[in-house]
Design a protein around this nucleic acid. Sequence first.
DNA 1: ATGAATAGCGAAAATGATTTTCAATAACCC
DNA 2: GGGTTATTGAAAATCATTTTCGCTATTCAT
Lengths: 171, 171
Amino acid sequence: MASITNFFDGEKKTMEHHPALASLNQEPDLLKTVLNKEGFRFTSQRQKILDLFQATPLGHHLNAEEIHQQLLDQGEKISFSTIYRALHVMVRLGLLQELELAEGRKYYELNTPFMEQHHHLVCVHCGEVLEFEDTKMTQVGHGESATRGFSLLNCQFTVYGICPSCQSLLG
Amino acid sequence: MASITNFFDGEKKTMEHHPALASLNQEPDLLKTVLNKEGFRFTSQRQKILDLFQATPLGHHLNAEEIHQQLLDQGEKISFSTIYRALHVMVRLGLLQELELAEGRKYYELNTPFMEQHHHLVCVHCGEVLEFEDTKMTQVGHGESATRGFSLLNCQFTVYGICPSCQSLLG
DNA sequence: ATGAATAGCGAAAATGATTTTCAATAACCC
DNA sequence: GGGTTATTGAAAATCATTTTCGCTATTCAT
C-alpha cells in the first residue's frame, strides 16, 4: 500500500491546491480553521512547522530531520513523532506536498496551485535539485488520469542526471 | 545523497538502454558478458533474479521481498543481502530500472529503450499501478536536462490518484 | 586446466527513517 | 469551567536496506 495512502484514506480529495494556501500568510489563524474543519486540532507545533516552510526559500525542500534541526536552532524543542504526524496531517489537508527524490527519505514543500506545479531535476551525484515548470506535464497527468477514470491527486515528474560540475569532477 | 548515487558513483552513464537488453532472451550468457565487462562476476543468483524479471508480466514491478518470496516458492534459497546487491549491480549496468512509487520501498523492472519509456499512474488507496507512454515526457526530460547541462540518466513521471473502484468504495 | 587473487555469498548484526505505544497534557465543544 | 479526546514527547518497535565477516566460487593468467 502506498504510504501516501494513509493521508487520504477514507475520502476523496481533488488536485486543486488548498484554497487556504493563497492567504496563509495574511490570515494568521487560517491553519486552525483548516485543521478544525477536518477534525484535527490546532497546536503550536503544527504552526511552527508550517511557519518553517513559509520561511524556506522556493526550491528548497525539507525532510523531517532538517525540520527538527531548524526548530532546535531557533530554540524550539519538538519530537520527531510530532514532526512526522504534523507532516502527514498537512499533506492530507493539501497544505504540503510529499516529494520522492530517490533518496532514502521523504522531502516536503508547500503545495502549489496545480497549474503552477513544478518538477525536479536531480543530480544523483551531489544531490542538487533544480526545479522547472512545464505545463505539458500537467496536461498529460490530467489527461491520463481522466482516461482511466482516476481522480487526480498529484503528479511528480523527476529527472535524474549528473550536473555539469559533477560531470567535470568525474572526468 | 541520492541513494541511486551509489549505483553510478565514479562514472558517467548515458540514458540509452543497455544494448544487451534486446537480446537477453536469445543469448543465454549475455548477463555474464555484461557483468564481466564492468568487473562484476556472473553468479547463478544474479541469473535467477534476472530470469524472474523476464518471467514477470509487463506492468508488474518487483521489490526485494517479492523476489525473495518468489525464489523461495520455486525452491531457490537466496539471502536478502544477495538480492539487494544484485539489484544495485543490475541498475548500475542498465539492465534494471529503479522505481519510486511513493511507498516505503523500492520497486524494480526491466529497463526499456529510452524512447519507449513508460510512466506510472498509481492508486494511492489500493496500490494499483497502471502504465502509460507519452513521448512528451521523454522530450521534456531531454530538453530540461540539456538546458541545464545535465547528462540524463533517467526520468520518472508518476501520477497519483484514486482509481474508479476505490472511488465508488469511498463514496 | 590449475591456482592465486578477490568478488560474491549467507547469516547475523547494524543502520536509518519512520511509526507506534502509552501516560500526561492541552484543544475543542457544550 | 469541565468532560472528551486528539496531540504530545520519550522510548520502544518496525521495516527496508546496508554492512560485516568468514567462507566459497568465479575469473584470469599461467
